[in-house]
Design a protein around this nucleic acid. Structure first.
Length: 258
DNA sequence: ATGCCTGTCTGGGACAGA
């Protein structure tokens, strides 16, 4: 079973890229982030025609997350994280597909820091960790997939060079501490587990020729609980998607479970 | 040193993204 995550940066303008990626990569489950469209304008029919059932939590203009399932209808378990009824951002959607629980996560970027956006990022992260602690205990496989907006370390496997990013919210000690606290619950960072120190970037900024220079960041992650990790077969990044016409600034990342 | 691009909503320029 192949599970993927892809920050599409606008599902409306990205739909041709998403459809061709689904056709070639054939994930059984695909978690999408940054739909940038409302619930009413989500391209449900086009995805259905491509063979995918979907649940989604849209938002006009920005944010928005979805879970797609090939030849199946995902069963929604939760939309939005618990812990803050005033949080209006569409950033979390949890669903069940064939006994597997999957969450599509779009963690706040947090820039500029310090400031209210960075405080929101850390508060949201804490809510995620609280909820993830419960999810980790489930007896069946769980995959937390998405754009975490965290560069885990300054190693070349995670970032081409930290120099120009040291003040960025993605590299801050508080951000990384929250990430380590999440992993300390027992979650396995699948890409890191199978690829170690090799560069496995998932994001390249649109400007400064960052794609052409492979000046990327590893910020899209798939975390596995113990039952899912026991089935981990392979993992990767569909880099070629980033090099196409009118691409997202992210590439899809995926895991294969036995 | 810097949103330098891109998408969205809108209707030209602001906001958000990382």
């Amino acid at each position: 079973m192949k599970i993927a995550t892809f920050n599409v940066n606008g599902i409306t303008s990205r739909l041709p890229r998403v459809l061709e990626w689904l056709e070639e990569s054939k994930p059984d489950i695909a978690c999408l982030q940054e739909l940038k469209t409302s619930d009413a304008t989500f391209p449900e029919q086009a995805l259905k025609d491509a063979g995918y059932g979907a649940v989604w939590h849209g938002q006009k203009g920005f944010n928005g997350v979805a879970v797609l399932a090939r030849g199946a209808q995902p069963q929604e378990l939760r939309r939005g994280l618990p812990g803050d009824p005033d949080d209006t951002h569409s950033r979390y959607l949890e669903a069940q597909v064939d006994g597997l629980v999957v969450a599509s996560i779009y963690l706040p970027n947090g820039n500029p820091q310090p400031g209210p956006k960075f405080a929101y990022k850390l508060a949201w992260f804490e809510r995620l960790n609280q909820h993830a602690a419960e999810l980790f205990q489930r007896s069946g496989p769980v995959v937390l997939a998405g754009d975490y907006n965290v560069v885990p370390t300054n190693d070349v496997g995670d970032i081409y060079s930290p120099k120009s990013w040291l003040n960025d919210a993605l590299l801050q000690p508080e951000t990384r501490a929250a990430w380590r606290q999440l992993l300390a619950q027992g979650w396995i960072d699948a890409i890191h587990k199978l690829h170690g120190a090799a560069p496995m970037y998932t994001f390249w900024d649109y400007f400064r020729n960052r794609w052409e220079r492979n000046a990327g960041l590893r910020i899209d992650h798939l975390l596995l609980n113990a039952p899912a990790a026991a089935r981990l077969d392979s993992a990767g990044v569909d880099r070629q998607v980033r090099g196409r016409e009118k691409p997202s600034d992210h590439a899809p990342a995926w895991v294969m479970l036995e």
